[in-house]
């Protein structure tokens, strides 16, 4: 099942989106470019500020780590040089995450599992907010099961018994922008995982023609991200056609 997306659920921020997949739901809001505080001002580029709030309670070291990862990932696609001495603020609220608060999913798996949803929600909100991006970006979770089988976008039951878990994000062009892997694996498995994840990520925003080449019976082969964004553009331009 492709992820469920609502574009612009919030009216106040510049851009917002909710992203729901089998494991987690994330609400993202983007504001920018805004005025930046003197302390964070960068002379040649926009400051990117990421806030992650957990599903329950206030954020702690775990959220600071997620923010650090997201900052590095988003920084590589946002055209920060377009808005020097400005601020782009991305706020992410985790609404639902696997095993509520990561208690049942130990060993760093809970955090890796929620990362793809955070990245996808943030990218959709950035697009909605009209923040310039170098290219599209999407993320996917891949689990390696006990028998060495790869599961793209796994469910909770797969997570609990998996050998290793990989959160991978790919930018348009196939560049591997993020890979957070945890578990026990070797380089051969990792290579396969990255290949599968890259296909799934690129398929999310492939245009119709490319899609055929990408589709190999995969669940994620549908260009869900492109469909959502195209629909949003159509809605936004509806007034033009009606007049």
């Amino acid at each position: 099942m492709p992820p469920q997306i609502t574009t612009s659920p919030l009216s106040r921020p510049d851009g917002s989106a909710t992203y729901t997949d089998a494991l987690s739901t994330v609400l993202a809001a983007v504001n920018g470019p805004l005025e930046v505080s003197r302390r964070d001002e960068l002379p040649s580029e926009a400051t990117l500020e990421i806030h992650v709030r957990p599903a329950a309670g206030v954020g702690g070291p775990r959220e600071r780590w997620l923010e650090a990862v997201l900052h590095a990932v988003l920084r590589s696609v946002v055209l920060v040089h377009l808005h020097p001495r400005a601020l782009v603020q991305v706020s992410l609220q985790v609404v639902r995450e696997p095993a509520g608060g990561g208690v049942g999913l130990g060993k760093g798996r809970g955090e890796v599992a929620v990362l793809p949803a955070l990245v996808n929600a943030a990218v959709l909100a950035l697009v909605g907010g009209g923040v310039g991006l170098e290219g599209m970006l999407s993320a996917v979770l891949v689990a390696v099961g006990g028998k060495g089988e790869l599961v793209v976008a796994p469910g909770v039951e797969v997570l609990e018994g998996c050998e290793s878990l990989h959160a991978v994000a790919c930018a348009a062009g196939g560049g591997l922008v993020m890979d957070e892997s945890t578990g026990r694996f070797d380089l051969g498995v990792w290579g396969e995982v990255v290949e599968r994840a890259r296909e799934a990520c690129l398929a999310a925003f492939a245009s119709k023609g490319e899609d055929e080449a990408m589709a190999n019976g995969d669940v994620e082969a549908e260009p869900w991200m492109r469909q959502v964004l195209e629909e949003k553009v159509r809605d936004a331009n509806a007034w033009r056609e009606s007049t």
Binding site: A171, M178, R184, F185
Partner: peptide, 27 residues
């Protein structure tokens, strides 16, 4: 440097890879 990679090994198995920030490190 914007991109960073951390590899954690336990014997011949990888236990953690943390890689983020850019598309330069491939296979």
């Amino acid at each position: 440097c914007l991109e960073s990679v951390t590899v954690a090994l336990q014997g011949d198995k990888i236990v953690r890879i943390e890689k983020h920030g850019g598309p330069r490190v491939g296979k």
